[in-house]
Nucleic acid binder design. Structure first.
Lengths: 302, 302
DNA sequence: TACTATGATCGATAAAATCGATTAGAAGAA
DNA sequence: TTCTTCTAATCGATTTTATCGATCATAGTA
């Protein structure tokens, strides 16, 4: 079978046109190199070199063959160099899932920080609901995913990096208190607008209010994104619960909205990376976890 | 050191995602394949596969690495296929020197025949005088050369393929005989036009006439090509000697020239391939020799 | 003729690859 | 649970391969 060693030996002979010198370059004995060349030539069926006791000379075939062999060996060396470069943490492509109620609010805050710390990082980002992310991580379609806990993980590992509280978002005309906090039992629960079934934010928000989902809730108004949800609140169609990270983008001063901290003891959800238990890139994920955490701690408070 | 075997083993595991099946594909035992993969991964510094007793799964790194490794292995396989294709006789580039008094007359007759017999043939043709061709063959710059013998070859091998006679070419107005042959001592030697010094044809022509070179010959009229030489004859500036192969092109019916066979016992020069004594492509040259000979025998006689 | 340089070759040894058998652990069935 | 099955890792033995040092053969040189 063809080996890289044979090719590099032959290339050394091509360079030096001298078996002993080539052998030295390759750090083997002359006899070993001679055998190596013989073996290669016998595999090829044609001699690469024309040689006697005094002179070594390329054959026409050898010239053409080694020209191409050089490309192959270079490609292999490139491959090894590439592998070495990959060992630098987070320099290989990483596919990350993220749930829709985290992605648009978290990533703009942390990705610049990540790119600064790991300039070679290359992330493929996928936005899906938690249950699909869990499946994709399990199947190896994703290296990791960012989800909100608590969530049934069924044997996956979780690397938490942030806890956050929920805020009640209302139209300012509906606020009848000067306090910055509000208790769940003060809420007009019947006007609560939530995300469509399947978004974990819905469950987390309800649980933050110590509420069970009300069966008589008007599901036709359940939204698919926090953005439209907040637009509905701005249209005085009700009130909603928004995680802290999203406040900055969703509740601007000119929106006519007011955000009140939920008084129930929090925090109410926790952001985490999830991976397979024996995922080999845990090192990279752990680095991401630290990096995300630092970025969030340094981010301007709302 | 990286080996092709490791790469092909890893690629087999990538395809099957199963060590035993991959081992079967590679015709080795599972333990050997397992060791091979381990060795490769240790050289790379990163695992290619994430595996436990039940499942084998590509890592992100493995995906990217094997993508590139596949290219390298394919390139190597191409290289071997290329080498095999070269084993087909005369399918590799062959550089051939030829002297100017043979090339233009011989090659048009034989090359079509060669290309028919060896469709993959690829010839690089170089036209030089004998002494330069001999040197270039010795230096390996040429695989072989076509020269006219006798010529001092100094250790090169000669593969003769054709003998030819010389013809005296004169203007028809200067011919005073009806015979088709002429003896050297009937020639107006003082009007003999020959090629410039260095062309072996000059020596061969003189020796065909049993002549030594005359010192008082008008060297200013020595030509550099048979074409101009014959043009001079057509201008009644003298007569010359032309090898048989060249007659067809040089002495056409409308040129006003007459060619008379030289009566001296011939043939007077012999065409041959020359090679280094241990040139490895002798097989190809021998095939060319046979091919040339056949082409010339089938060529229409002058 | 003797000397030098050089690639091929040989025999011994060292290194590796490979095998078969076994182990350990996970998944699924009873 | 407990048993069975499946699978990759591991181990020890063996075979194969690679390598070395020494020697040989030979072309070129003095």
């Amino acid at each position: 079978m063809l080996t890289f060693k044979q090719l590099t030996h032959a290339l050394a002979v091509e360079r030096t046109l001298h078996f002993k010198k080539a052998a030295n370059h390759c750090a083997v004995s002359q006899s070993a190199l001679s055998a190596s060349i013989h073996e290669l030539e016998s595999q090829l069926g044609s001699p690469l070199f024309e040689r006697n006791n005094k002179h070594v000379m390329l054959t026409s075939f050898g010239r053409v063959f080694l020209q191409r062999a050089r490309q192959v060996v270079l490609a292999a060396e490139d491959l090894m160099a590439f592998a070495q470069a990959q060992r630098e943490p987070l320099s290989y492509p990483l596919s990350i899932g993220v749930i829709p109620t985290i992605g648009p609010f978290l990533l703009p805050k942390v990705l610049p920080h990540v790119r600064e710390a790991y300039p070679n990082v290359s992330l493929r980002l996928v936005e899906e609901q938690s249950h699909r992310l869990v499946q994709q991580v399990r199947d190896g379609e994703l290296d990791t995913a960012i989800v909100a806990l608590p969530y049934p993980l069924e044997g996956l590992h979780a690397f938490e990096f942030w806890d956050e509280n929920f805020f009640v978002v209302m139209h300012h005309s509906e606020v009848d208190t000067d306090a910055t906090r509000i208790r769940a039992d003060e809420l007009a629960v019947e006007r609560l607008l939530l995300l469509r079934e399947g978004h974990c934010l819905k469950d987390h928000a309800l649980s933050a209010c110590r509420l069970q989902m009300s069966a008589k809730q008007d599901t036709s108004l359940e939204s698919t994104s926090l953005y439209t949800l907040v637009q509905m609140v701005a249209g005085k169609m009700g009130l909603t619960l928004v995680p802290e990270l999203a406040l900055e983008q969703l509740v601007t001063s000119e929106s006519g909205l007011v955000a009140l901290a939920l008084a129930e003891p929090g925090p109410h959800r926790s952001l985490a990376f999830i991976t397979r238990v024996n995922y080999v890139g845990v090192d990279g994920v752990e680095r991401l976890r630290v990096c995300f955490r630092e970025a969030l701690m340094n981010a301007p408070a709302h």
